[in-house]
Design a protein around this nucleic acid. Structure first.
Length: 266
DNA sequence: GCTGCATGATGAA
DNA sequence: TCATCCTGCAGCA
């Protein structure tokens, strides 16, 4: 489930679990054996999320860089009854009482602080990092590509993935195919504010829920059915929670984009 | 048991 | 634009 909110949540929880602790690192799968050996026994001094990139700092300026990609997962285990790590476990980071297991990452590597800085520099502003909306506006406006393509471009805005792009465009009332350069000032600001609000909610909740409970006739998020938690994502042909129009599907930037033709005018 | 995805990104064509 | 990589799991037979 890796969009930016997932990575920020991981950084926060791993900070509480690992920072200041001596960490035992290993690679059951073997593919990161050399890297794990370099971390093993050292102390974690910081964890940080930058868009969809996760960084840990260990002794001697050793930076662990993880990008989960589409299928990567970090799972937390504690207590006496822990299942054996799956065969695909690339990395285990363990303290005396808690253990994090990484599987399927697109990237898992050791880098130095300069390389970490290069990653930060390659990314646009991150809605979950308190970054600058003006910077977002300038970057978004600089392209004629469809706004839905721009929102997935990590150098324009860091951390948005396919779910949030669909949901934020719905909430802002913008057709995904509208050229980014033609999105008005108020709409650009709304996109940013909605991304901040929704991704922060996702970070707290540990999953993406964008629907206002009132729109589906319940009082709390916890009362919503699984298929009611999103307005448009993966809902082609189903009815819009707000206006009952059938949700449409279009491909933008090689990824599926769902939208409501009534709520999201071109 | 097998197949086909999936909230991502890249490099070749 | 397409093929490819990374893994786990749901939905099948």
């Amino acid at each position: 489930m890796p969009e930016g909110h997932t990575i920020h949540r991981l950084a926060r929880r791993q900070r509480a679990d690992l920072v200041g602790e001596r960490v035992a690192a290993s690679s059951p799968q073997g593919r990161f054996a050399a890297g794990a050996a370099r971390i093993d026994g050292s102390s974690c001094s910081a964890t940080e999320a930058v868009g969809k990139h996760l960084l840990h700092v260990y002794d001697a300026d050793l930076v662990l860089h993880v990008h989960l990609g589409l299928v990567g997962r970090f799972r937390r285990f504690r207590g006496p009854d822990r299942p054996d790590p799956s065969d695909g476990t690339r990395l285990v980071l363990a303290t005396d009482d808690v253990e994090w297991r990484l599987s399927g990452p697109m990237t898992c590597e050791l880098i130095d602080p300069a390389q970490a800085e290069a990653i930060r520099a390659s990314l646009g502003p991150d809605p979950l990092a308190g970054d600058d909306p003006t910077d977002f506006a300038a970057r978004l406006r600089s392209t004629d590509r469809p706004v839905a393509a721009a929102l997935l471009d990590q150098s324009i805005v860091a951390g948005i993935g396919n779910v949030y792009r669909a949901e934020v465009l719905f909430l802002a009332g913008i057709d995904p195919r509208r050229p980014a350069s033609a999105v008005g000032d108020d709409d650009v600001r709304a996109l940013w504010d909605l991304a901040v609000e929704q991704m922060a909610a996702g970070e707290r909740l540990g999953r993406i829920v964008t629907v206002d409970p009132a729109d589906v006739g319940v009082e709390r998020v916890s009362d919503m059915d699984r298929d009611e938690r999103l307005y448009v994502y993966k809902r082609a042909g189903e009815l819009c929670h707000r206006c009952r129009t059938a949700i449409s599907l279009v491909e933008v930037a090689g990824r599926k984009a769902w939208w409501c033709p009534t709520c999201q005018p071109f």
